[in-house]
Write a protein that binds this DNA or RNA. Sequence first.
DNA 1: ACGTGTCTTGACCATTTGATCAAGAATGAA
DNA 2: TTCATTCTTGATCAAATGGTCAAGACACGT
Lengths: 208, 208
Amino acid sequence: MMKSKAKPAAKTRIQSQNQDLILKAALDVFSTYGFRGATVDQIANKCGLSKPNLLYYFRRKEDIYTAVLEHTLTEWLIPLRLLEVGNDPITELTHYIVTKLEMSERNPAASRLFANEILHGAPHIKKFLNGPLKDLIEAKAAVIRTWIAAGKIRPIDPHHFIFSIWAVTQHYADFAAQVEALMGPNLDPHKTRNAVLDILLNGLKVKL
Amino acid sequence: MMKSKAKPAAKTRIQSQNQDLILKAALDVFSTYGFRGATVDQIANKCGLSKPNLLYYFRRKEDIYTAVLEHTLTEWLIPLRLLEVGNDPITELTHYIVTKLEMSERNPAASRLFANEILHGAPHIKKFLNGPLKDLIEAKAAVIRTWIAAGKIRPIDPHHFIFSIWAVTQHYADFAAQVEALMGPNLDPHKTRNAVLDILLNGLKVKL
DNA sequence: ACGTGTCTTGACCATTTGATCAAGAATGAA
DNA sequence: TTCATTCTTGATCAAATGGTCAAGACACGT
């Protein structure tokens, strides 16, 4: 029998079902404790599988990690891809920032997993950074330059502006412990959204 | 003989010398690998001491971690403390942001150690966040409100504005791997400084 | 030089943890 | 039902790692 491909994403019903369980649990555990801090046992317990069974689906701990990391990365770029020249820069950027904030709020674990990976030197995703992400950021920097050339926004540095958006939006997921300690547990997402939009976008207006 | 205090910061020449070596090495190792990812052996090797010798100065791994963390925190607040009402908000904020960027550039390990701790829920510094840091941020939020009341800057949310400054400035240390991948290894600190100041402060201007 | 207290370390221990394996249980196509 | 394939797990291993200890080396005031 042909074994189809090297890594058949999922063949059996049980396979795809369990792989899904594992990836969900792994995202939780890895994002909370980091790669080294997480244990295979923790992940196994969290999804109700035995450790050997888990290692039947992913041979090594690192395989689970890279799988969940890649799965996260692909979704991570989607909002930025949607940033196009369009008509109004403020509309476009507002949509991007709001989407990013919503992602950080809905799935902080993914944000933290990513942050942790970068923080430790991005050993597993160097290629992703130098390849797809680099290409994407250059394309979007070009979009921003178009706006500037058209006189629609003030001339800011596109790259550093994108970094600032990333930094601020992800801050609310990655540094949630700090934000919560300083603002209390009932942070109003609506207020946060308005404040962030205000701070990041108001400086773009061209002087009259 | 009186043992003076519970934890005499350092008595002997050798003691203060070795404790210093240990803390320096520990900052490096902990910031790179996280608490769980770091090993006592790594720290010992890095500072040229044997593992048992290192554990002679700090009984447990966690003691080293908390020591280096506390040592870092105290310095971390200094620039923000210097933020006062003064005359010109832009001057004050520029100074704060520039200082923060310089700290991130000069000592990225400290920034990453802190980021890592927060990222994992800040288990060791909850008290610091809820106490000194909370007090400080409230005081500085008041400073910003003073500027707003005086009509010197546009009415932005003080807390979220401080968060934004933290997020953006620390981004260049914490996410250095990503920044480097996207901008190349020769990032010009001067350009970064100007770009960040431009993005964060231009939106504060009151409309004419 | 002496001697007390400080410093250093090789050897060792207990636990955790990633990973293996053989054997048994469940699944599903014929 | 049959039976090959897939799935599951208890038992177990080897390595890594935090921490201990007793014994020896060293520093330094006298």
